[in-house]
Amino acid sequence: MALAACGTVALSGTAVAAKSGEPAVTTAPLVRGLYQSAYSERNDALWVTVAVGRPPVTSSSLLKVDPDTLAVEQTITPPVTDGTTGAKEAVYGVAVDDEHNTVWVTNTRDNTVAVYSQKDGAHLATLPDVAHAREIVVDEKHDTVWASAFGSATLVAYDSKTFEEKRRVTVEGSSPTGLAVDERTGTVYAADLNGDRLIELGRKSDTRRFITVGDGPISVSLSKNGKVAYTAEQTSGTVSVVDLRTGQVTRTVTTGAGALSVGTDTRSGDIVVVNRTAADVTVVDPRTGTVEATVATGANPNHVEIADGTAYVVDSPARARGGEDLLTRIRLAG
């Protein structure tokens, strides 16, 4: 569908010169099977998960990428779970805990989550019983890590220091996918894919609030002050702007087919939405509903991570091209 944008920035093999007010774009091929990324401010590193194929997954890794050069600095291989087939703890979702210098990942096929050291890449723990573990998010202020167990309608919390399970909250009939946490309050938000709603869960209470959003919410992000939530809706190709004080959707913006991931640029207040089917990302001013730019990516963009005014987008899988998946860096316009 057509988008009212300031301009579309095409990709090349390296950097793309942007017109005034448009994002500058750089791309780099990494490896096949990119899924998600998370930025570490402590180490100035981008951690990227890689998994290829269906079970038994024998090709999986956790990459440490230099955000300036987009070069792979370290490749960490997950533990083998089956010596006969060579299957590994295939990594998909990822989040960084800079306070404790760790990386947390979801091993979706194995129904577990795992913890790695940012210092040396050591595998520190595998934590069981997270059915179809999809996404993971870190609340450094409250020493808590949350994982979404899509397969059991459950949100699971861990102590980020000891790796011990702290809470397990099941929301019957839900299908939790994307997560976001307000570190001021410890409140966690989960996109309920099949329920077309946002689930809100307080840090100390099992009381839930449900906020109806668009069709097929799969990812959620918060504004810098934690008062507004943004949900990317895969089925409708939209993003909803949610006033968390009133629990109402104040604006719905069409972004593109297969909206799959959303991130907030805390510097400008803009949001970036990955549109998987459309093979692009949309930069939106959520206060006005204005689409400010549309940026083409590789086929099947999968996830966006935003840090210091820069968006990092991974695409997957490479089957559409027969080669490596791409990491796209977008310097967002100020």
Rank of each mutant, 00 (worst) to 15 (best):
G7M: 04
V9D: 00
A10R: 10
V16G: 02
V16L: 07
K19F: 04
G21Q: 13
V25Y: 06
L30D: 00
G33L: 10
N43M: 13
D44T: 15
A45D: 08
G53P: 02
V57I: 15
S61Y: 06
L63W: 06
K64H: 10
K64N: 11
D66V: 09
D68W: 08
T69A: 09
L70M: 10
A71V: 12
T77N: 06
P78R: 01
P79G: 03
V80P: 00
V80C: 11
T81A: 13
T81N: 12
D82N: 15
D82C: 05
G83N: 14
T84D: 14
A87F: 03
K88N: 07
Y92S: 12
V96D: 04
N101E: 15
T102D: 12
R109G: 09
D110K: 12
D110T: 11
N111P: 03
S117G: 09
D120F: 06
G121V: 07
G121L: 04
A122T: 13
L124R: 10
L124V: 08
T126G: 04
P128W: 11
A131K: 14
A133E: 06
R134W: 14
V137Q: 08
H142A: 13
A153K: 06
V156Y: 00
K161F: 09
V169M: 07
V171W: 12
G173P: 06
S175P: 01
T177L: 10
T177P: 00
L179F: 05
T185Q: 04
R197I: 07
E200M: 14
G202V: 05
S205L: 07
D206F: 06
V213C: 04
G216A: 08
I218M: 10
V220C: 01
S221N: 08
K224W: 00
N225L: 06
Y230G: 01
T231S: 06
T235M: 07
S236R: 05
G237H: 01
G237C: 03
V239L: 07
V241I: 14
V242E: 02
T246N: 09
Q248M: 09
V249W: 11
T250V: 14
T250D: 07
T250H: 09
R251D: 03
T254C: 00
G258K: 07
G263H: 03
T264N: 05
V273A: 02
N275A: 03
A279G: 07
V281S: 01
V283R: 12
R287Q: 13
T294N: 08
N300F: 14
P301E: 03
H303V: 06
E305D: 12
G309A: 05
V314N: 02
A320F: 09
R321K: 09
E324M: 10
A333I: 04
